[in-house]
Design a protein around this nucleic acid. Structure first.
Lengths: 341, 341
DNA sequence: TGGCGGTTCGGAAGCGCTTCCGACATCGGG
DNA sequence: CCCGATGTCGGAAGCGCTTCCGAACCGCCA
């Protein structure tokens, strides 16, 4: 049995503070029944020795794990990583450790929900921007801990997200106010997340805005694809191949918009003179392409989700169960009025 | 059938297998001194009840934690997230949990090394693409566990990275072979990582390539900045403001290159007709801007790092202590021969 | 002054596992 | 046929903590 270099235990703290093991434990875990004086004394001794309770022992003895699992479907995409960073920030400040589970393929996803590797290891779970199926929800319930959904609603869990319908409306209104009428939409759908409500609501906004402007929707101007840039490029190519180009393109995400941009440029179309393009996200690299977009505070959503988790863990009944963070239009260089003619 | 909370213990397994607790433990952990027959019997009982040892109890009793910490300086950047995904992939397959620590500011970094939140919680640590100082190395040693550096060498830890000098040479050779002579360099340096060797070696490649081609280096064509796109844009602007434009720009990263690209376009310079631009990374979004670059297998580096960690944990003396993954030039649309004249 | 409810604290029993140590059986060689 | 080496296994002692239970003590009212 190998011993770690530092072997300060609760017993040492208790001894130095002149209290029993039981009291020391209560003092550190902020339990009921310890006088403020004693508590502070124990705490200061612990701080002084930079002592932290062994999570293993604590958990084993029936306490909390001090850990939260975050399940993320696509780690290497900015949106997810950024939101994860937000969650991490809050948890770190609270001294909670973050267990990461990436489920970027259907196989991994199935594996995760079948084996439930987080079982008995965490006090709560954050489901990052993907909708769980009913079956998965049942599996997750087996963990017996609180769950929050970040970046989208899911299975009645407490959630934090943006108003996708409003975001879509912001994008469409911008295009419409510039005078566009022939507006294409490249909708994003991911095989990992069939039926992700965000998509539908962003599509809904498209149709609503068109209707409100008295413009008949043309199904030939709508394409579906995955969230990636290459998919956006392909959809745009398909759009161009099958008829006269639209004067504007509303993409469900910045990555998709960037893909569309590349296709347009390769085809010799000028942006925004010939075609305007708008996305949603405000991806930092999209700014480098001068993409007009709708900004959403991704990191902020992550942070809010982190706070919700903290509330769940501490059983705080006043903790928020829903949060919608606002979005805002960011006009850059890829949108302009349509050409006269 | 899995119940929550799952209350099957080793004792149950032992009883059903007709052995003692001690033997059951040995059988499951593959220790010495158990006959093959007994071991298989215990294992099949465990499988049948889908039993897994409680990591808490196991660790408390002197076993491993089954956890690895990954320290990453900038989660939301593709490079780091992608590499993290690689590490996660390997660890997940091995049944190891991944504890994430993001240290994206100097404060967080100091906090991490001072408090060592990973203390007593992990079997190994992966330091993701940032160099630790001597002082930090000493703190890290306090953890008493193995450490591997991914995405760059650091403090004599086992490492996996690319050959930055070779990568830089690939980029420079491409530019030179196109006939460029007036080549600018936008070097990246991050405040989080002073003296990061990758930078120096990418710069070294610049000077070596120039020298080998018999072209005198012009200090006026070199700029330093952070890794971000905005910094690249600023550096490019500065470059343009202070003299006749170069015919080519060698950027230390794709994000920097994308920034330079934006500045060039805003200034009305055509790419690659007027100015060629090359980066390093092969960022997926850079492909959407048709950026010529040097590809590095980021995810692969992460996976390799994950395997090194596994080797460390299992005390495998044959485990590799160093890996250099190859890079390759990817020619796209932002480079071409210089204009005649 | 006696008794009572409330507060603060200590003793001690585990939580589920690993591993030291020693018991026992078996087996080959002298 | 006996003895020690070898191979298997069980008993039991923790690992560091939480929490139940009850003891001690406080102030207060009758």
């Amino acid at each position: 049995m190998l011993r770690s270099p530092d072997r300060v235990t609760l017993a040492d703290i208790a001894a130095r503070a002149g209290v029993s093991l039981a009291t020391a434990s209560r003092a550190l875990s902020d339990s009921y029944g310890v006088s403020p004086g004693t508590r502070d004394r124990v705490r200061s001794v612990a701080d002084q020795l930079s002592f932290v309770v062994s999570p293993e022992a604590s958990r084993l003895a029936g306490g909390r794990t001090g850990r939260v699992a975050v399940v993320v479907p696509h780690l290497s995409r900015w949106f997810f990583a950024e939101m994860l960073a937000g969650v991490e920030e809050v948890l770190r400040e609270a001294g909670i450790d973050l267990l990461l589970y990436n489920v970027d393929t259907l196989d991994h996803r199935r594996h995760f929900f079948e084996r439930l590797p987080a079982r008995r290891k965490v006090d709560a779970v954050v489901v990052l921007a993907f909708p769980v199926t009913e079956e998965e929800r049942q599996r997750l319930d087996l963990l017996g801990v609180g769950i929050v959904a970040a970046g989208g609603q899911s299975a009645r869990y407490p959630f934090v997200c943006i108003d996708d319908r409003a975001a879509g409306a912001q994008a469409m209104d911008h295009l419409l106010s510039l005078g566009h009428e022939r507006i294409a939409m490249i909708a994003a759908e991911t095989p990992l997340a069939p039926g992700w409500p965000a998509v539908n609501r962003r599509s809904l906004a498209y149709h609503e805005a068109l209707a409100a402007a008295g413009i008949p929707a043309d199904p030939a101007l709508v394409r579906d694809g995955d969230w990636g840039g290459e998919e956006g490029a392909a959809a745009m190519a398909d759009l161009l191949a099958s008829g006269p180009p639209p004067t504007a393109v509303y993409a469900h995400s910045d990555e998709v918009a960037l893909g569309a941009l590349r296709t347009l440029r390769r085809e010799g179309l000028r942006v925004p003179e010939d075609v305007s393009v708008i996305g949603i996200d405000d991806h930092p690299l999209a700014a480098l392409s001068d993409l007009t977009t709708v900004h959403q505070g991704v990191r902020e959503q992550g942070r809010t989700a982190g706070q919700m988790v903290l509330g769940l863990i501490s059983q705080d009944p006043t903790a928020a169960r829903a949060a919608v963070v606002p979005t805002r239009l960011v006009v850059r260089g890829t949108t302009g009025p349509p050409r006269r003619g």
